[in-house]
């Protein structure tokens, strides 16, 4: 019983923290982007404009929840839910605390990859079910982009698995007690961050929702709460990618003095800052450049890195 109670409290705390952090992140991003562009950003609603997202959320909630007559209603409604469920589900294996994640899954890393792959279905379903040209274009782009970048992401994580000898995210964190893997595996780190950005569909990889070409891409036809779910999914995804990168490359909650969750939050914050910084700096990729970069640069780098890592691991185990 107490084990169940503890599990439930952990889930509740994680959910509350995430569902508060994601809208906060919208505000943080708007303020930060503004500073990068010599603007001030939203600063009117509440102290420092912090309640701006509350106002926006209220506005979204009161909008008409519309299913366009030309859309395919069932997948249209299901698609945003898939995104929310997969992103939130993936957090189950992230070890926020020193004692591990909500579920101590032995295939945690695989679970994360699987969840983010299922998340692609949400985008594709949304685009196809919307039955409009812009949504369709966005979905096609999203599918191509996310599938090709997922490979590089998986390969970069595979080299970490080789070193750590485990798919369990908690074990990976424990294995980094001495040295975070970003030092040993800089290439895998860079590949993961780039592929993660692509997975998030954020600038410079925001082709699926390129505002100035295809309106809003796959979620063009969405309104109200369904749109809000996509929005929430994007920002939760930002936290998720940051959290996985923290866990796998920066040693999760490891750190002196402060408790593990605080260290974890600081490191995730760094990644989120990096994502926003990249968005402020980099222009959008062209579609063919995106594909060429993914297949001709990222994938070979990740593959080579995996091969070299594998060879070294084998040499070490054979030597000892």
């Amino acid at each position: 019983m107490s084990a169940h109670a503890e599990l439930l409290t952990r889930m509740a705390v994680t959910l509350v923290v995430l569902l508060v952090a994601a809208p906060m992140l919208v505000w943080v991003e708007r303020r930060l982007l503004a500073r990068f562009q010599l603007r001030l950003g939203p600063n009117r609603v509440g102290p420092f404009g912090i309640l701006q997202t509350v106002a926006d959320a209220l506005k979204l909630l009161t909008k008409e929840d519309w299913v366009p007559p030309f859309a395919d209603p069932v997948p249209y409604v299901v698609a945003p839910m898939i995104l929310g469920i997969t992103v939130l589900g993936a957090f189950a294996v992230v070890p926020f605390t020193a004692s591990g994640a909500i579920v101590d899954l032995d295939v945690g890393l695989l679970f994360f990859l699987a969840m983010s792959s299922v998340g692609v279905y949400s985008v594709m379903l949304a685009g196809v079910a919307s039955n409009s040209k812009y949504a369709m274009l966005g979905a096609v782009r999203a599918a191509a982009q996310m599938i090709s970048y997922e490979l590089a992401m998986g390969l970069s994580l595979a080299s970490i698995v080789l070193i750590a000898g485990s798919f369990n995210l908690h074990d990976i964190v424990v294995a980094q007690q001495g040295l975070p893997y970003v030092v040993i595996q800089p290439f895998a780190f860079v590949v993961f961050v780039i592929a993660g950005l692509a997975e998030l569909k954020r600038a410079p990889f925001d082709l699926p929702e390129a505002e100035n070409e295809i309106v809003a891409g796959f979620h063009t036809e969405y309104s109200s709460m369904k749109f809000a779910l996509f929005f929430l999914g994007e920002y939760l995804g930002m936290i998720l990618i940051g959290a996985i990168a923290t866990t796998v490359f920066l040693g999760g909650g490891n750190g002196p003095f402060l408790p593990a969750p605080v260290w974890f939050a600081i490191k995730v914050g760094l990644f989120i800052y990096l994502f926003i910084w990249a968005r402020a700096t980099l222009p959008r990729f062209r579609y063919d450049h995106l594909m060429a970069f993914g297949w001709k640069v990222l994938l070979p780098v990740a593959l080579l890195n995996l091969m070299v890592t594998g060879a070294l691991v084998v040499a070490r185990t054979a030597g000892s």
């Binding site: 500073r35 990068f36 562009q37 010599l38 603007r39 001030l40 910084w277 990249a278 700096t281």
Partner: peptide, 14 residues
């Protein structure tokens, strides 16, 4: 990236 990083410390023109 570096140039944009430096920009965030400038005074906003708003």
């Amino acid at each position: 990236m570096w140039i944009i990083f430096k920009y965030q410390f400038r005074r906003p023109v708003t």
